[in-house]
Amino acid sequence: MIRINNNDFNILELNKSATETVVMIHGIFTNLSVFYFSVAHELAKKYHVVLYDLKGHGLSETACSGYDLQSASKDLLGILYELHIRKAHLTGYSYGGLIALYMAVYYPETVDKLIIIETPNLNDGQSRPLLEGYNKLFLDRYLAGLSVSTHMIPSQRKIDKIHRQVQYLFEHTTLKEDLRRDLDLFDKIAENNPVTNETLLLYATQTECANAAAFLHQHIKKSSLYYGKGDHSIPVQNPEWLVDKIIKFL
């Protein structure tokens, strides 16, 4: 655990002796394990890999506020500072990709190459159920879909735990308002194409974020876009494809 901005963060480092660092940022309502068992250790054969749980996720501490992209980026800057990393490749999955993009726009001096996996545009309508707050039925449907796509059936204790965690974040923190505050990130990216990093866009063949993929490809000059077999759970379904693409890109 490392204390950053008055919050405890669960951080894991792999292959600390490597010269280049890859930071991996998970999505909302998941945790660093989405990368741990597959992608991270393959990348760690060559790179220093930093995994961390976002605020209020995994084993990191939950705070009442600070779930917007600016706060999340400041948390990440604090982690980089604490670990003495001046510049890193950022890999962001889903919402984590928005944090990576935000870092590239506002703190470009800290970002080397960008890898964006299945990242949505919060403002394109697809993410509306997420922005409307805790919805038991929606979450049950989401978890049921996740079980089908990952072939895993969570126990009732696990399902209850996820419900409690999501409900708490929506009803007792500023998460909902914070998510709404960041709807304009893609507009900012379109305004004057501020992301100049070499960027790898990795999306699933059954993605629900195809518009976001095309948008980012259009507005990030040095970007390449690939589609791999799977859906939004592609880090679990098809990690070999992700590893192959990322290693070739880096």
Binding site: N31, S33, F37, S155
Partner: peptide
Amino acid sequence: FTKNLEMDSIEIVAFAE
């Protein structure tokens, strides 16, 4: 781990570490 002990993914990561 995931069934009888009902450990979730982040708990299995902590165990692996």
